[in-house]
Write a protein that binds this DNA or RNA. Structure first.
Length: 330
DNA sequence: AAGCAATTCAACCGCGGTCCG
DNA sequence: TCGGACCGCGGTTGAATTGCT
């Protein structure tokens, strides 16, 4: 017996408009994320609670990095997918700036194909390689069980490490940087500012008002473009976003928006580096952008595993990883 | 330039887990 | 302990975009 749909009829579906984004963001700024059930009621948004949560977590949440995945991120995803399977949320917890949806999409649209190609290139060299497929449905039951045991062993090991005091402190000290990587480089606070998301929206709003959409779909594509480039300093910094714009009524909504959220400049386009200037409001969202600490427990283990290997430079790294993985599991 | 195919990715759907009265 | 409500996750869809002929 299926549960009735969580959303009643009458809720709006489809792409979010900038206005809806603003309403949602301003509500969350005031009340904090959570209690999603109350969001549509309290905001007047004609969206179901799920949709609001999804929009926030996948798009509006502070600290989200959009755009191209780096080599490191890519490798991490490949490794973690091999280790954890399609547990995108777990994988995303190791890449705090990426959403599970983003990672999932990236895997399905790009990495899976890339690995297939790679695998095709290696085909014939080893039987085990053939069996290591990014699309794992072909995995036999025995293989699956062995893999599960490996996962369990890893988890136990990580847990025992986490429970030992010295490891615990090292975990605390060695939180992953905002990029999800160990702090061999300058440590960037993992938390992010609320402004980083409002900044995106304000930028969006400015552009949106500069080119008022003829219809909602166009607005949405604007949203996509802006958000896609919003945190990409390379692409956004050259864009004259500073142009003050007024809407058709002559009201500079972007300024109003700016004052509403109280951040200094629209021009500090890189949200990654705006994190240190956290406003009191922004600190509200620290926890939201922080992965659950418990989810980070196995990180030291994984970090070591991932980055020791990462130290082994070379063009064959990717294929090596696959070979290593297949050797581990089969 | 137009039409079609392939790709991308935001959003939706449905299920399982957890919480709480 | 039970059942309903809510939340989070993974799989899937489909509109928009891009590439190719």
């Amino acid at each position: 017996m299926g549960r009735p749909p969580c959303c009643d009829k009458g809720v709006k579906k489809g792409p979010w408009t900038p206005e809806e984004d603003i309403i949602l963001v301003s509500y969350i700024q005031e009340h904090g994320p959570g209690n999603w059930r109350a969001v549509p009621t309290n905001t007047g948004l004609l969206r179901c609670s799920k949709s609001c949560r999804l929009r926030w977590t996948n798009y509006l949440r502070p600290g989200i990095k959009r755009g191209n995945f780096t080599d490191h991120e890519e490798k991490m995803i490949i490794h973690l997918q091999a280790l954890l399977g399609n547990r995108w949320a777990a994988i995303a917890s190791y890449l705090p700036q990426r959403t599970d949806n983003d990672i999932k999409n990236y895997w399905n649209t790009y990495l899976k194909k890339k690995l297939s190609k790679l695998q095709a290139g290696l085909e014939g060299n080893s039987h085990s390689r053939e069996e290591f497929s990014s699309s794992q449905p072909t995995m036999s039951r025995g293989q699956w069980e062995r893999r599960l045991q490996t996962d369990i062993r890893m988890a136990k090991q990580a847990l025992s490490e986490a429970l030992s005091p010295e490891k615990s402190t090292s975990l605390t000290d060695q939180k992953p940087s905002s990029s999800g990587f160990p702090s061999t480089t300058k440590q960037v606070p993992q938390t992010s500012t609320y402004a980083s998301s409002t900044e995106n929206i304000s930028r969006l709003l400015k552009s949106w008002m500069r080119n008022p959409p003829k219809r909602t779909k166009m607005a949405q594509s604007e949203v996509s473009n802006l958000y896609t480039t919003g945190t990409d300093s390379a692409s956004s910094e050259g864009t004259p976003l500073s142009t003050t714009s007024a809407n058709n009524n002559g009201i500079d909504l972007s300024e109003a928006f700016e004052s509403l959220f109280g951040f200094e400049s629209f021009e500090s386009s890189n949200s990654d580096f705006s994190q240190s200037n956290m406003s009191p409001e922004a600190s509200l969202f620290q926890d939201e952008s922080n992965p659950d600490p418990s989810a980070q427990l196995p990180l030291s283990l994984l970090e070591k595993w991932l980055f020791d290997e990462g130290a082994a430079q070379g063009k064959e790294v990717l294929s090596d990883m696959i070979l290593d993985e297949s050797a581990d599991f089969f």
